[in-house]
Amino acid sequence: MDNKDNTHIVKYRTYLFVLITLIVFTFISVAITGIQLGKLAVVGALVLASFKSSLVLWYFMHLKYENQFLRLMVGLVLFVFIAVLIVTFFDYSFQ
């Protein structure tokens, strides 16, 4: 059985760059809530959060360097969760 399909070493610089991006986006999302955007604030904050967590998944959690299967599974799980949420809202948003 092959144990060697993940020998990629990520450079410190990459992590540092991703970290700075993450922190910048954290401050952006804080700044955005200062502006009164109403409903858009929710959407905006969630979009930013999704972007940040994708960065974590992609670089910190090495999805970028993993095999296709894992990426597929992560996608599937997120899809299932979002679909469950949407289906639940079939009830609440049409009441």
Binding site: V80, V84, F90, D91, F94
Partner: peptide, 17 residues
């Protein structure tokens, strides 16, 4: 995974659901 609501047809869900 997406059919659970049929346990709740009398529970008061929205018509769409």
């Amino acid at each position: 995974y997406f059919v659970w609501g049929h346990h709740m047809f009398t529970a008061g869900m929205s018509g769409t659901a």
